[in-house]
Nucleic acid binder design. Structure first.
Lengths: 147, 147
DNA sequence: GAGGATAGATTGACAACGCAAGTATTGCCA
DNA sequence: TGGCAATACTTGCGTTGTCAATCTATCCTC
């Protein structure tokens, strides 16, 4: 119960902090960044929208809205799947990859700063292990190259 | 970094789960509930709006919007502070207290179910201790009577 | 005490996201 | 092969919460 309220507040606090940084420096939301990152790690730099929805824990409509912005900015393109005309891939563009690279510098810096001043490495592992047990959290796991 | 993405997803997953339950059964959002709860624990069952904003980690305008709904439903009233005409207290009404009591039954049940199937008591303590270190998370601490 | 800085609160415009409903495509099964 | 369920996605609408601007009340300083 206390754990719950802290979980809620922890999310609110951290997203606010990181969001303003990303927004101010690169005009990206935290979800924008996550989406670009997931795409960059994916095979062929593309992902089905359903897959993004699962990984980002957004509803399909949320993904559509998110990608609208990213497409308008030229960071992703929609491509179709020849074998199944229902699916629309989100394909990372060269511009998107560059944007991600640039934004990563400052962003992972902020994250490290935020977390490493409060936790040791072991505690971070502990924390993510615990959070990973909640239903749906540890889905498309991300092998985390940059940090 | 993995910790961060899991934190974000953990919040998204849990709020969605708990929100739909609360919403369906009692027409309250999670923040509505938290606000009622904080008021019920406060001295005289009232709190300054600024205080609510700190505790719920909402902006002041967020608090105003939240209380709009609660006032319309008759669960809180606004009262003024005689010594400082700027502050407007949010005062829990009798109806609000009853609503909270009724909603608590099912709600803390859901929470326990969600958390206790995945964690032991020690792990919950560990988790909330860790989360509490993030800036701003462990503010108005809540001495947690019900669970 | 007058004047400016500051704190508490509200309002309007806006972005993000969920839900429900709708469309299009595919797979299943008789 | 025809029909029906399921899947992938989009769109309209409502809710929630933020930000920037504003108003009032209080405090602080001269």
């Amino acid at each position: 119960m206390r754990a719950l309220t802290r979980l809620l507040r922890a999310k609110a606090a951290t997203t606010r902090l990181l969001n303003v940084g990303l927004q101010a420096e690169h005009g990206l939301s935290l979800n924008d960044y996550e989406a670009l990152y997931l795409l960059s790690q994916a095979e062929g730099r593309r992902l089905k929208r359903v897959e993004l929805s699962r990984r980002l824990l957004l509803t399909p409509s949320g993904v559509t809205r998110l990608l609208e912005g990213l497409e308008a900015a030229g960071f992703v393109e929609r491509t179709v799947c020849p074998s199944d005309l229902r699916v629309a891939y989100a394909q990372l563009t060269e511009a998107g990859a560059e944007k991600l690279a640039v934004a990563s510098c400052g962003h992972v810096g902020s994250i490290r700063e935020l977390f490493e001043t409060h936790f040791t490495d072991e505690e971070l592992d502990e924390l993510s292990e615990l959070l990973g047990r909640l239903p749906g959290v540890a889905l498309g796991d991300d092998s985390c190259p940059a940090a």
